[in-house]
């Protein structure tokens, strides 16, 4: 198959995330990254180039990797319950790193009452375990293209 750079920039129905670079990060202290890895693989299969940070990374570290890697988006996987604090920290670090345009998404166990406050912080999408992978990918593609 031939993938040209031109093609990589245009959304394709088979590979809706092609041409995008996305950082998947686990801030905070929870040690469960199956969800992060499943999402990372699904994004790869949708054509994205995915960078994964590994567990227990600080907001500063996540922002630094995001700017060094020139990503379009950061997906934060959080199961610890501290999502509001952690997301605010990452968004703050991105702004201070002069990268406020990097879009932030959150996945994990996020109770519905917290969705609106997270959106107020600037989160573009919130994905919970009851959503199908297909729906997550379609929503990401819509937000990022």
């Amino acid at each position: 198959m031939v993938i040209t750079a031109n093609e990589t920039k245009a959304p394709s129905t088979d590979y809706p995330l092609r041409g995008l670079r996305i950082l998947v990060a686990k801030p905070g202290l929870d040690g469960h990254d199956i969800g992060a890895k499943v999402i990372a693989l699904a994004m790869r299969d949708a054509g994205a180039e995915v960078i994964y940070t590994g567990l227990r990374k600080s907001a500063q570290h996540i922002a630094r990797v995001a700017i060094d890697e020139g990503v379009d988006a950061v997906g934060l996987s959080i199961l610890s319950g501290s999502h509001c604090e952690l997301v605010a920290q990452v968004i703050d670090c991105l702004a201070r790193a002069q990268a406020p345009d990097v879009k932030v998404f959150v996945g994990g166990t996020i109770p519905v009452p917290d969705h609106e406050p997270l959106r107020q912080l600037g989160v573009r999408g919130i994905y919970t375990s009851d959503m199908s992978l297909d729906r997550v990918i379609r929503d990401l593609a819509q937000q990022l293209h």
Partner: peptide
């Protein structure tokens, strides 16, 4: 890169990011 989707998991830096002093480097996948 995956020859099918064109996507990729760029994992080289996971191990590097654990190293002390890695902040002094610019690592790019």
């Amino acid at each position: 890169s995956s020859p099918v989707s064109g996507g990729a998991i760029l994992g080289d830096r996971i191990r590097m990011d654990e190293l002390d002093g890695i902040d002094r480097l610019y690592v790019r996948s």
